[in-house]
Every structure is written in structure tokens, then in C-alpha cells.
Amino acid sequence: MNLMKREEKKVILSEEKDHKLATIDTITFVTFYLGNFLCGIPADIIMEINKDTEITPVPLADEFILGIMNLRGQIVTVMDLAKMVGLKENIKPTVNLILKTEGEAPVSFVVERIGDIMEVPVNKIEKTPERMEGISKEYVKNVYQLPDKILLIFDVDRLLQF
């Protein structure tokens, strides 16, 4: 049942993407900083962004899990994104990016600092380079070259797969 749902969701997601590829040629990303890395997650899967929420720690949980929070009566699992992607630097998690997760318990990624909302032309999205320092490459789906820096586009499905 659960599996099926997930399957369905995936299909829908990919359809959406295809649709976007065909008609509009930009994807909107919410960008944020993890240390010096500029990272992005597609804006359409982010439900809301909030700051300084009260997080209840869950002892014995994995290291990258900061705890749980109460989002209008829903229990949201809060994760330290920097730790998840294997960022070496120590950062102070402050901003919650709450993701839309259909059916399943919602998840929040906590990041250090929020950046701009960015429209990225689809045809400018590039493959992840072979070598990446300071961050696990497996969670970076694509990159986008900005004039002064590079935007790492995360593979959210991958991040939530455990």
C-alpha cells in the first residue's frame, strides 16, 4: 500500500518535471547556505519555511536527526541537512525548510541561512562534477553554474531514502 503510494508519487513527480521541461524552461529553486556551499531544493516541494521553531530532541536517534517538532498538530521529523550530506564544517542550524511529503510524516531540513529564490533555466543545469570536496556527492543531483559560484541541486528523494 505504502509502496504503491510512493510509486504513484514518483510518477507524478516525474510527470511534473517532464511537463516543466516541455513547456517552461526554468525551474524555481529555494536556495540556502550550508557553510560556504550554495545549495538548492525545488521550490515546489517546499511547503513552508520558518525560523526558530522549538525542536524536541529524540535521544538515541541518528546523529543527523535533530528531533521532532510540532507543525500545527503534525509531528515533523527535523533533520540537520549539513550532517546528512556529510558537511565537515560545523554550522548552526536555524532555518526550517518543511517539505511536502504526501501521505508520509512530514520532514524538515534545517539549514544555516536561507538564500534567494532562483529561476534556473533547465538547459543550463549540468551534471555533477566527478570530484566534490567537503560534501557527499551522492546527494547532489545536478549543479548550476552562477557567475561567481556554483549552485548544488540536491536529490531530495535520495536524502529521504533511508
Binding site: 529524540v58 503534525q74 509531528i75
Partner: peptide, 24 residues
Amino acid sequence: KPLGKWFKDIPVYSGATIMGDGAL
């Protein structure tokens, strides 16, 4: 309330609840 799948392996919790004051 059930906890997410990330807590499945911890035997000491059976879930979470929201207290009267909104705390978990």
C-alpha cells in the same frame, strides 16, 4: 502520534504526543 520511519529502530519509543501547551 506515530513517529517517522527514521525512528523505527529505537525500541524505547512507541510514538509522540502533543501536550496541552503545544510542546511535544
